[in-house]
Design a binder for these strands. Structure first.
Lengths: 252, 252
DNA sequence: AGAAATACATGGTCAGACCAGTACACTCTG
DNA sequence: CAGAGTGTACTGGTCTGACCATGTATTTCT
């Protein structure tokens, strides 16, 4: 060996991975926007100079990532999708199910989110958003008669309206993701539907309290209330020592 | 129509999806455990009675989900992997980048995370983690002489150790993601390296304060400190009205 | 002009082939 | 008998070419 050259490691990059890489990067640079169409598989194999199998494998991973959707028979080609927290939910779910992430962590995270969202909502909400939240609470009231499932759906809608009022998309996204994951994990899909009318009334009362604080612009109170209600709600599913119960409540 | 039968919607399920489904479910029921080997693609195509392309597409999505890894030439077949939150990081990152998120929202989110992480760290940290944090702070001290870039790296390491001590992987992941996004947005990659020794000293002093609170097990103080330091750090880059500055500081 | 039938390209799946690479058993050697 | 070197069978990665059912867009017919 003449030179002690600074060679760099050579990693075999699979062809389909490079296809994924390029398309993904085109999406993240906004060269491809939601609603746009990718060329057909047969065209892609020409531009990337690979076989259709390779193109298809790339499309499958893009599809599993939620970036793209292929529909058979559509001559316009695969569609670029709008990014959605749904995929996040699925991933979190899997991790919780595989016990890589403890349920208590999820609840902790949820507490923090709910606190922050309510705090911010109290400070940033517009009149329209306030109106939407009031309407959501009224809807909950109305849905009590229609049973726990309908009520839970209305409850979810209320919380969504709060997140929207927080004016923070990240919290909205994480909120959606954790809600989805918690629902699936805790009850297998029923959102811990309150089993009795009194429980529904209680939930409703809680939400009314929060709404009042948000309406009054009292961020700290809104946050504290949200925090304690989540703890109450999920108190029975967190770890025995009650890890998630602690954590900065600090309520004066 | 004789009967008004309760037919259920029929969705065309693609073949590779059913393969994914079955393997994934086998993993989540622990029928397949990390380290186990899947049959080779050629065997799988026999047991599932589909072509190899279909099997491969299924394996690609499982691989992109981080559940499985295929290596060429390995006669033992694809390996079932230990589930890891790393995959979540990628998803969160993509979401943060794809969603047009205002800088102020990112900072807000960051404030909330840092607060919660420090609060939790103060309550859950072990002795070892405390030691790691002390070591990280000492490293920062030492790196001051080596310039802002080295110092920033050490600073990041300290915060990582705090997140680790929070025992909440979700916060850890979101913390990493927001840090990355903030670095990209604010400076295009330089992590706002403090430009003067005095600024470095200031950062170090802040971190020492936080560490002291964590060490004392004083969650509320640790959280409040973290919050105010992040605000101070990013105060000049958030929106004029200082939206992100508010929000539940509620410091006594 | 509106409705019905058609044409065509698309994605989903399959079969069969070739190659480079790895794990493992085998052989040769000391 | 132990260790180093060789071989080989089978793996995953990629390609070609084919068939089908389906959805869109055009054409045709009324």
């Amino acid at each position: 060996m003449a030179h002690k050259a600074a060679f760099t490691a050579v990693k075999t990059v699979k062809a389909y991975e490079r296809v994924v890489e390029q398309i993904e990067s085109a999406i993240s640079t906004r060269d491809l926007r939601p609603g746009d169409r990718l060329p057909s598989e047969r065209e892609l194999m020409l531009t990337f100079e690979v076989s259709r199998s390779t193109i298809r494998e790339a499309l499958r991973v893009l599809e599993s990532t939620g970036l793209v959707r292929s529909r058979p028979g559509d001559p316009r080609g695969p569609e670029v999708l709008q990014a959605s927290p749904a995929i996040l939910t699925k991933t979190v779910n899997r991790l919780v199910r595989l016990e890589t992430i403890a349920l208590s962590e999820l609840v902790e995270f949820r507490i923090m989110l709910e606190d922050a969202a309510c705090t911010l909502a109290a400070e940033h909400r517009t009149e329209e958003e306030l109106e939407a939240m009031r309407a959501a609470v009224d809807a909950m009231q109305a849905e009590i008669a229609n049973g726990p499932v309908a009520f839970s759906r209305a409850d979810v809608a209320f919380h969504s309206s709060v997140w929207a009022a927080s004016h923070n998309q990240l919290m909205q996204i994480c909120g959606e993701a954790t809600r989805g994951a918690l629902i699936d994990m805790v009850t297998g899909g029923l959102d811990r539907a309150p089993d009795s009318a009194t429980k529904m009334e209680l939930s409703l009362a809680h939400d009314r309290e929060i709404l009042a604080a948000i309406s009054a612009g009292d961020g700290p109170t809104a946050g504290r209330l949200a925090r304690s209600f989540v703890i109450e709600y999920y108190g029975d599913v967190i770890s025995p020592e009650g890890r998630a119960v602690q954590g900065g409540v600090a309520g004066a």
